[in-house]
Design a protein around this nucleic acid. Structure first.
Length: 418
DNA sequence: CGTCCACAGGAATGACGGGCGG
DNA sequence: CCGCCCGTCATTCCTGTGGACG
């Protein structure tokens, strides 16, 4: 800004604007968001090419093979798929080829029903929130697709979730549906984080669904570094970051199976911390702080969104676990859990239900549990919380029900008898 | 060598909030 | 409005199990 005016009252203003512009490390924050889709995807040329090859037949009206895409989180599966779909979409529109593209995420949808509803919505068919039989939704969808007359490319992200929590029926139904509507079709692209996913499919689905497979290897450290540098030049003010900081980001993320999304998150949070403490330059220490913060946030978020009884069980595990060995047996935990529940004026759940919740907590990684045998004295799980009592109490302190308990003084140390 | 502890976890069933078509 | 079916969460009932004790 050139201010040729000699006005002094704007002295402060200029100072402020200078402060605002110069202390901003991040100039393009959208680039560091996890949903940002870059217009080129380095180190994924092979995968893009294979997916392109597979989908190419759609351009002369024939059905492409179904595809399964494998790779750990943050290896670019979703980005590559979306990228390729977008390109294909452009081409199909330019050549007036009827083709519909649907992207769904099984885990975000949550249930089979909602996944179908989402598909329907993407093809402009309204499906009620709930209340219909799955078969009903399916047949409505079929009729609708018949009427629309345009083939569909359906991406199901995190298919492994779908199959794990339900089974492969829905996938089977979709493939047969596709066969019923020839010459139109639904071509399915399944994206899975789980490399063993295919084994969980029944033979009838397996042969249909995985006609083609593409594997996404994890990014290596140099690859991650290169990706980060590119993002950094776009998103951060020039000269506001050190090479070392970028490399640290890459190294930290590579140790977690080459997760690019996490690497970019780390960069963004790092830059934010640097900004907040008024630093001119993003350095390694900021990245380290960011790493802590990300982990912390993730845990806190998980804790806060837990259902009531899961919270109580976790709290019980943390309070009751043996001070030195740091674990509880199932029975003792159930005992403390019941007491906690009663203290909150809540009926405790049955042991059976508690057991299910416990395994859920285990799969979430908030607990560890392993089976031990005391022979004549039975067998039980040794359950130990993976999170400190302190963190748990803090996270629960805002809970409308549990908060009253956690803010109270810690229970007098009642040593459990064994 | 059989018992029997202290649970794990499958199957069946029910209560509940909701939408459906008629 | 009704009778029906849905998905979700929870209960009840049940069978299964590794190994120290007797």
């Amino acid at each position: 800004m050139k201010s040729s005016l000699q006005e002094q009252p704007d002295q402060l203003e200029s100072i402020f604007t200078k402060a605002l512009t110069s202390n901003r490390l991040i100039t393009q924050d959208a680039v560091l968001r996890s949903d940002y889709l870059p217009n080129k995807l380095p180190f994924r040329g092979l995968q893009i090419a294979s997916l392109g090859e597979i989908l190419a037949p759609t351009l002369h009206y024939s059905k492409p093979s179904n595809v399964l895409i494998y790779g750990k989180t943050g290896t670019g599966k979703t980005a590559v798929t979306k990228y390729t779909m977008n390109k294909l979409k452009e081409t199909s529109i330019a050549n007036q080829i009827p083709l519909a593209f649907i992207y769904t995420n099984a885990r975000l949808c949550g249930t089979e029903y909602r996944l179908l509803a989402e598909m329907a919505a993407a093809t402009n068919l309204q499906i009620p929130f709930t209340g219909l039989a799955l078969t009903e939704v399916l047949s409505r969808l079929e009729n609708h697709i018949r009427r629309q007359r345009s083939p569909i490319i359906l991406v199901i992200d995190e298919v492994d979730y779908l199959v794990k929590t339900y089974n492969d029926d829905l996938l089977y139904n979709l493939t047969t549906l596709s066969e019923r509507i020839t010459p139109s079709f639904i071509s399915i692209i399944g994206i899975s984080n789980d490399l063993q996913f295919k084994d969980q499919l029944g033979a009838r689905v397996q042969s249909r669904l995985s006609e083609e497979e593409i594997v996404f290897p994890p990014y290596t450290v140099p690859e991650l570094a290169s990706i980060l540098k590119e993002r950094a030049t776009m998103a951060l003010r020039q000269g506001s970051y050190t090479e070392a900081a970028i490399n640290l980001c890459a190294a930290l993320s590579a140790s977690e199976h080459g997760d690019a999304r996490r690497a970019v998150d780390l960069l963004r949070v790092g830059a934010e911390t640097a900004e907040r403490e008024g630093s001119e330059i993003l350095e390694e220490k900021h990245i380290r702080l960011a790493l802590q913060k990300i982990d912390q946030d993730r845990v806190n978020e998980a804790l806060k969104t837990l259902p009531l009884h899961a919270k109580l069980l976790l709290l019980g595990a943390a309070t009751a676990s043996h001070p030195t060995q740091n674990y509880v047996s199932t029975g003792a935990l159930y005992e403390t859990y019941s007491n906690l529940a009663k203290a909150c004026d809540i009926e405790p759940l049955t042991t059976r239900r508690a057991s299910s919740i416990l395994t859920e907590l285990h799969t979430l990684g908030l607990l560890s549990a392993h089976l031990v045998n005391y022979g004549r004295y039975g067998r039980t799980k040794q359950i130990r919380p993976q999170i400190s009592l302190d963190t748990i109490q803090k996270a629960f302190s805002e809970d409308p029900i549990i908060g009253t308990i956690t803010t109270k003084k810690t229970q007098s140390p009642q040593t459990p008898t064994n």
